[in-house]
């Protein structure tokens, strides 16, 4: 919404700055544009970019290792007083051996950066048609609040097919809401609001685990994302709503919303 808007602007402003450098890869810009209308599932994008980068670094690594191994095995010392016989570099080739690698490395860097940036935008631009849930983390639980006031703990129940956005904060230490299956995490902190989103497509269960050291029981701080079919989700939500209503408005007013630290005014990230 409005916060989202500011974020988009900031992102674009920074894009302009980096763009001067990154525009080198017009390919990136094209992908970003053609990507706008449909939902770009970041998890899919992650898998393919990760795969690509791993293949690239494997090739570079093998090339480098082979050359090194070749130099090493052809250079064994055969006589005690032998010294190396490598040619002396001329001034021109010394410069060449500096400038050429710089350009090669720089182009690999910028290519990787351009790809990473496109995927970054998918991770940060949340589709408008989404389910937005508030998350408050605490030692040691994940507490979710749905738009209609329904609350759950350690179980995030969502409908298949709809993007889910978490707006996160913490009531005590740092935590990080990590869903390995959806390739995403982001820290939750006291006094700040952060967000992440993911795109559950079919019913199933996914582990949520804490990825930021938060205290003694850090390694036990886990939960689940439970993806239900749209119908089952609607039915579940209906039950929860009825229960919430039965609990009664006065009760809700009395206990108040989930306990949040008072004066902590969230900052935008």
């Amino acid at each position: 919404m409005h916060k989202q808007h500011v974020k988009g602007k900031m992102c674009r402003a920074s894009a302009a700055v980096c763009g001067a450098v990154l525009a080198a890869s017009s390919w990136a810009a094209e992908t970003a544009q053609s990507a706008a209308p449909k939902i770009n599932d970041p998890a899919r994008g992650w898998d393919s970019l990760w795969h690509e980068v791993i293949v690239d670094i494997t090739i570079i690594g093998i090339l480098f290792a082979v050359v090194t191994a070749w130099f090493v095995f052809t250079s064994r010392r055969t006589a005690g007083n032998q010294t190396g016989a490598s040619p002396k570099l001329s001034a021109a080739s010394a410069v060449g051996w500096t400038v050429l690698p710089i350009f090669i490395f720089l182009s690999i860097d910028l290519y990787t950066a351009a790809n990473g940036w496109v995927l970054w935008n998918h991770y940060r631009d949340v589709p408008a048609d989404r389910l937005e849930v508030k998350l408050e983390s605490g030692m040691y639980s994940w507490d979710y609040t749905y738009p209609n006031g329904v609350r759950t703990q350690n179980e995030l129940i969502v409908p298949a097919g709809k993007p889910v956005m978490l707006r996160m904060t913490s009531r005590d230490t740092l935590h990080s809401h990590y869903i390995p299956d959806f390739r995403v995490k982001e820290d939750s902190m006291p006094g700040r609001v952060t967000y992440l989103w993911f795109h559950p497509t079919k019913p199933g269960e996914h582990l949520v685990t804490c990825a930021e050291y938060c205290g003694v029981m850090h390694s036990y701080m886990a939960g689940r994302v439970i993806v239900k079919s749209a119908d089952e989700y609607a039915a579940w939500m209906k039950r929860e709503e009825t229960q919430l209503a039965a609990a009664g408005a006065p009760a809700a007013a009395e206990t108040g919303a989930p306990v949040a630290k008072p004066a902590a005014r969230p900052k935008k990230t």
């Binding site: 900031m10 980096c18 450098v21 982001e186 952060t194």
Partner: peptide
């Protein structure tokens, strides 16, 4: 993943790669 400003994360991706 600490909730830094988006532009800073992108900018330092470039310097880090360099």
């Amino acid at each position: 993943v600490s909730g830094m400003a988006d532009w800073l994360r992108i900018g330092q991706m470039v310097t880090t790669l360099m």
